[in-house]
Design a protein around this nucleic acid. Structure first.
Length: 586
RNA sequence: AGGGGCAUGGUGCAACGGUUAGCACACCGGCCUUUGAAGCCGUUGAUCUUGGUUCGAAUCCAGGUGCCCCUGCCA
């Protein structure tokens, strides 16, 4: 790991330490409990990291448990994807469990509650159940079936299990308190009937399925999970879980809740991510613009960077949204240390050195990674014609522009000093070719006379260049919080139309020829890039992971907005004058 | 007759009754530079509000305000 992670204490770490100190628990066990109905996103990464690191730090273990209590929503497709993502993040679970492993046990628990007079079969319609639950400010009323004899409940529940009832016709509920201020305690449903589809693990063995609330706490208990770490919305459920554990007399897990973390310029809810995928607004779950882990992987993010980011955001009970810039900071930080440098020209402009011998090629040496001497050096060819970025030449350079311009001398990275002498334009006025002279004394980029140049630009020898496609990604949304849409608007109305730009005909140094999917590089002065799995023998494709910090771009942007502001003011002034003139005339 | 949670610079966290309220990112300066990168140095900027307890309150208590969650046979 090149990124050092500073672990700061937070209330969960403190609570766990206290529980150990007080003897409430003698060892620590946690679990990560996804439902296999979608792909993991960076919010899950946070939960995973908390679950696994709390166990790790205390010499305990963490289980992976799929909460698969609803066959209508779940699919094996997601099970494998979830496991792959967790491993990619760098964690290995002690046991792979499924809530469905406990269906027999859960069934017995339900019978136990019935026998204690704490559960009953309710024949009210779904509508009646809802109506009788009351509202946030009104107490609920008891079901007419609530006081049914225990024997009858036992028989009916058995009949439910045996398939004698249609979906939705009856449920098993627990008897707690229909007047509770906590809605979860108003006789919650324990079991419902679901004849189809078959369960991905238990097939058609069951036609009754436990509700999440009846499965989760007991599953934790069965696995002897000491600390069940979950998000804030389960705070209201904790009393219910504890009630079950108490009534059943089984191992008491401690649940601790923490806030989810949002990210700016994206959405995180499963529902919304599904919508983006299903409606083709992105190319799939692993579209590099998505906040899913599979997408970050394809985008070139490292698990280390994601972990460092998560650790940097901390853990609290306050709902918050982290700046995506912080995530970007961590991936730059990591890749700066580990990614080898290469040169690539994304938007080529041809340059000819008029005083360089035709047909000559020289081999120059370039440092692979100035941050890591062990990365060594490589050789790159140099010749009379080469490409530079269009943005690295300016016919009429603005203030503080350090790059190539008529009469200006710049350094070609690891090459020579060159001075632009002349340029060619097409009918539309676009510069198509630049002519320059070079100083043969400056090979490698050093001037023996000690003279300095302010700009250093990257380049690719024209005859040696290889072509590639580069996919440039920008934030998926145009606003920091797409969820808070105005009236009549939907989060998709804020999608960034320019979030993907596919650039073809990019020029790369020849050494990049053998690059394989997943290989990461820093293209000097541009950013970090990774080879995309769509790459074929004849078509090399890179994804831009993140740009380098770019002070010049910031200056340009500031100038542009200044200009806009000025124009706006000027227009207003004009309008004011026109009005005045009209007044006078009138 | 509602219940549960949360409030510290722009953002995310820390400070656990005693610190000039700290750190990271962002921002703004500067240094350095064969990447306008990285690195280094520095500046600006915060305790929701009103009371109370206390020698002393971001921290404890009460009221207020604001935000989030809860009325699935979803998880």
């Amino acid at each position: 790991m090149t990124e050092e992670i500073n672990k700061t204490s937070h209330f969960i770490r403190e609570a766990v330490a206290e529980d150990l100190a007080s003897g409430r628990f003698s060892s620590i066990a946690t679990r990560f409990p996804p439902e296999p109905n979608g792909y993991l996103h960076i919010g899950h990464a946070r939960a995973i990291i908390i679950d696994f690191s709390i166990a790790e730090e205390n010499g305990g273990f963490c289980n992976l448990r799929f909460d698969d209590t609803n066959p209508t929503k779940e699919d094996v497709e997601y099970v494998d994807a979830i496991k792959e993502d967790i491993r990619w993040l760098g964690y290995e679970w002690k046991n792979e469990f499924y809530a469905s492993d406990y269906f027999d046990q859960l069934y017995e628990y339900a019978i136990e509650l019935i026998k204690k007079g704490k559960a009953y079969v309710d024949e009210q319609t779904q509508d009646e159940v809802r109506k009788n639950r009351g509202s946030l400010t009104k107490p609920g009323v008891n079901s007419p079936y609530r006081d049914r004899p225990i024997e009858e409940n036992l028989e009916l529940f058995k009949a439910m299990k045996e398939g004698e009832f249609a979906d939705g016709s009856v449920v098993l509920r627990t008897r707690i308190d229909m007047e509770s201020g906590n809605m979860n305690m108003r006789d919650p449903v324990l079991y419902r009937i679901l004849h189809n589809p078959p369960h991905h693990r238990t097939g058609d063995k069951w036609c009754i399925y436990p509700m999440y609330d009846f499965a989760h706490g007991q599953s934790d208990s069965i696995e002897r999970i000491t600390h069940s770490l979950c998000s804030l919305e389960y705070e209201d459920h904790r009393p219910l879980y504890e009630w079950f554990l108490e009534e059943l007399g089984i191992f008491k897990t401690r649940q601790i809740e923490f806030a989810r973390l949002g990210l700016t310029y994206t959405v995180m809810s499963k529902r919304r991510l599904v919508k983006l995928v299903k409606e083709g607004l992105v190319k799939g779950w692993d579209d590099p613009r998505m906040p899913t882990l599979t997408a970050y992987r394809r985008r070139g993010y490292t698990p280390e960077a994601i972990r460092a980011f998560v650790e940097a955001t901390g853990v609290a009970k306050k709902n918050s949204t982290a700046d995506v810039g912080l995530l970007e900071h961590h991936i730059r930080q990591d890749l700066n240390k580990r990614a080898e440098r290469r040169m690539a020209v994304l938007d080529p402009l041809k340059v000819v050195i008029t005083n360089y011998p035709e047909g000559q090629t020289e081999i120059l040496e370039a440092t692979n990674n100035p941050e890591d001497e062990s990365a060594g050096t490589r050789q790159i060819p140099f010749s009379r014609e080469f490409y530079i970025e269009k943005s690295d030449f300016s016919e009429d350079p603005p203030n503080k522009y350090f790059r190539l311009a008529p009469g200006r001398e710049v350094r070609l990275r690891y090459g020579y000093f060159v001075t632009a002498t002349d340029f060619v334009k097409d009918e539309s006025g676009e510069v198509t070719e630049v002519h320059c002279t070079y100083d043969p004394e400056t090979k490698g980029g050093y001037a023996p006379d000690g003279r300095k140049v302010r700009g250093t630009i990257h380049w690719i020898s024209a005859e040696d260049a290889i072509d590639a496609e580069v996919r440039i990604y920008d934030r998926l949304f145009t606003v920091p919080n797409p969820m808070s849409a105005e009236e009549g608007k939907d989060f998709t109305d804020y999608l960034n139309a320019d979030s993907l730009e596919t650039v073809k005909g990019c020029k790369l140094e020849p050494g990049l020829k053998g690059a394989r999917p997943g290989d990461r590089f820093q293209f000097e002065r541009l950013g970090y890039f990774v080879v995309d799995p769509d790459t074929t023998d004849g078509n090399l494709i890179f994804n831009r992971t993140v740009t380098l910090r770019d002070t010049w771009a910031r200056i340009e942007k500031a100038r542009a907005s200044e200009k806009m502001e000025e124009n706006r003011r000027r227009k207003q002034e004009q309008k004011r004058k026109q009005k005045e003139a009209a007044k006078k005339a009138g």
